[in-house]
Simulated assay, not measured.
Amino acid sequence: MNDLWYSNRTQVYWTCRALVQGRTISTLDEIGEVRGWRLGAIIHTLRSKYGWPILTDYRGPERVGHYTLSKSCDVLMLDYPRSAKDVRAEAKAVQIESDDAATGAANG
Rank of each mutant, 00 (worst) to 15 (best):
M1G: 13
M1T: 09
M1R: 09
N2D: 10
D3G: 11
L4Q: 14
L4W: 13
Y6F: 14
S7I: 13
R9C: 12
Q11G: 08
Y13I: 04
W14Y: 04
T15V: 05
T15N: 02
C16M: 04
R17Q: 13
A18Q: 10
L19E: 01
V20T: 09
V20C: 09
Q21N: 12
G22I: 01
G22H: 02
R23S: 10
R23Q: 10
T24F: 01
T24L: 01
T27V: 08
T27Q: 14
L28A: 08
G32Q: 04
V34G: 07
G36C: 01
L39D: 01
L39R: 04
G40P: 04
I42T: 05
I42L: 00
I43K: 02
I43G: 00
T45A: 12
R47P: 07
R47Q: 13
K49L: 12
Y50K: 04
G51W: 00
I54R: 00
D57A: 09
Y58C: 08
R59G: 07
G60V: 04
P61M: 12
P61Q: 15
E62H: 15
R63D: 12
R63Q: 14
V64M: 14
V64D: 15
G65S: 11
H66C: 14
Y67T: 06
T68H: 15
L69T: 05
S70M: 07
K71S: 15
S72E: 15
C73N: 08
D74S: 12
M77L: 14
D79I: 14
D79Y: 05
D79A: 13
Y80A: 02
Y80E: 00
P81H: 04
R82F: 14
R82Y: 08
A84H: 01
D86G: 09
V87F: 00
A91Q: 04
A93P: 06
A93G: 05
A93V: 00
S98M: 10
D99F: 07
D100S: 04
A101I: 00
A101R: 14
A106M: 09
N107C: 10
N107I: 11
G108N: 08
G108F: 07
